[in-house]
Write a protein that binds this DNA or RNA. Structure first.
Lengths: 299, 299
DNA sequence: CAGTTTCGTTCAAATTATTTGATCGACTAT
DNA sequence: ATAGTCGATCAAATAATTTGAACGAAACTG
């Protein structure tokens, strides 16, 4: 039972014009219409609604309380409709209304935030949704259509329908707090020495497949946290040790809040990637991929 | 420059019908219209928008991404419009869309919450906004048009344009924590004895005129808090003493968390009132006043 | 106070917009 | 193959809106 709309947008436009110009006549002039046409539109609206929108008992018509409600809320509807119109037009022009991005927890914040700033400055109408993901999380979010772009993924599995571009390199630094026992140990530190201390681990944010594991040495006690920021804070507080992305800890090491230690089995620097699904990329996605890989090439 | 609306609601209705019934033809049948009329509406929409809403390259028309966005967001606009229509009709029928109520902090919660529950059950479409106010706060909120109703006010000043109905009586009980020194004092306690201990005071929530004061004894150290609940918790924790509305402390006294003490100058029970502005009362307001005063008469 | 302007309504006529119904070509399912 | 369904198109019919002229009521104007 599709209720036919008792309120029509052009009636709301007319109502708005009457309010803004002060009278039916002035509204008519502003709308390039004759006053009787405005009268007609409003009385049409009133009879469909079954409600008096104007009180005509005096000389000039004045809004009733119901009319005031209709006007105030109607204006929201009008702007929402115009917004929708332009969002649809932009989408047809391949500018997506929203872009969802998974950012791998290893991505140093300093590398990504400036890009976010210039994105939002350049594309103010596009909603940007950022999710921090860990290990397989970004990959899964991309595969499962929860994001359009995954940034900073290492060693992505080959997969039909996923494209990628190189972003940069991720190197790890083994860290502990200055007061931690390992800070005084003989370097390079071997696995067995490390294994005696609690390791800080960032939990994989993948919901379904947890096939990957981090830099873990078996039998080592763990403290698992849910984000890189928390992991580093925990290490700073001496709660454990671990390999951290170089970009995340450079400042803390320079400030003396963390100590960088050479280890026997230092992990190789790994290439990181930007990933997206094959198929029609919107312009905002293209812009972001370009900006990411360009800043990568510049380095 | 009133942009004429490129999107019309009946086009959105048609779009919705096509999506729900699966084809132009089925939508036409559902709308009691001929298929070509549906075609006409949609191509009208598309040409005004300058965007293809359907992809007609295959046998059946299928929504483009832009069309999908238009449909999804358009549905919101449709329901918002219908809601607006019925809100306007209800308002014309004197059912206000929103009712704002100031509740004096002395009102025992047990007296008011059941009423709120039955209000929301009976009037699900009416937004109820409750604000707790202290001393002159309710009065001021009413005078300044920030609420339609003030509940539980004591000794309202006479004022042109404010109506009232009796609600009940408010009696005060002097309380302290079981471990507080006053708990062991000789009763009835006189003012001088009280004055040696910190008084808990609820801050007046009036913004402009603070003409009223509570049950204060001069020279007494105070601890001022911003709500009755906080005041009572503070007394329970032994942070001070004070007169409290009987309805607020009965349970704590019964449970032994508070001690009720007889004092020399026990305040008289005061009548409390329900207040509203003279003039057109909406039906929800009338309902609430009736319910409040009826439950008052029952006691 | 009379004259003038502005207000908003009403009505028939003119103009526009939508709906109909018939027809068509393309594709599906039997 | 052969209905049957889908959606587009077009002229004609119908419906809705806009116009323009006329009107009464109220508010200015001098």
């Amino acid at each position: 039972m599709p209720t036919d709309p008792s309120i029509r947008l052009d009636a709301l436009e007319t109502l708005d014009a009457i309010d803004r110009h002060g009278s039916f006549a002035a509204a008519a002039a502003a709308l390039y219409r004759v006053p009787s046409a405005v009268s007609y539109t409003i009385s049409q609206l009133e009879s469909e609604l079954g409600v008096a929108v104007f009180d005509r008992s005096g000389h000039r018509a004045v809004l009733t309380p119901a009319g005031r409600l209709l006007l105030d809320e109607g204006r929201r509807i009008l702007t929402a409709t115009q917004e929708l119109g332009s969002a649809v037009r932009r989408l047809a022009d391949r500018w997506e209304p929203q872009l969802r991005v998974a950012i791998d927890a290893t991505m140093p914040p300093s590398a990504f935030w400036p890009l976010v700033a210039s994105f939002t400055a350049r594309h103010p109408r596009i909603d940007l949704v950022l999710r921090e993901e860990v290990l397989a999380g970004s990959w899964e979010a991309l595969i499962e259509d929860r994001v359009e772009l995954a940034v900073g993924v290492t060693e992505p599995p080959a997969h039909e329908g996923i494209r990628r571009a190189p972003l940069g390199t991720l190197s790890f630094v083994f860290c502990c707090a200055p007061g931690h026992p390992l800070a005084a140990a003989q370097t390079p530190i071997d696995d067995e020495t490390i294994r005696a201390h609690r390791a800080l681990v960032v939990a994989d944010s993948a919901r379904h497949f947890n096939e990957r594991s981090g830099n873990l040495l078996d039998g080592q006690p763990r403290l698992t946290v849910s984000g890189m920021r928390t992991k580093i804070e925990a290490i700073e507080r001496g709660l454990g040790v671990g390999y951290c992305p170089a970009g995340w800890v450079a400042e803390a090491v320079a400030a003396g809040r963390l100590v960088e230690l050479e280890t026997v089995r230092t992990p190789e620097p790994r290439p990181t990637w930007v990933l997206w699904r094959r198929g029609d990329r919107g312009r905002a996605l293209i812009w972001l991929i370009d900006a990411l890989t360009e800043s990568a090439r510049a380095n």
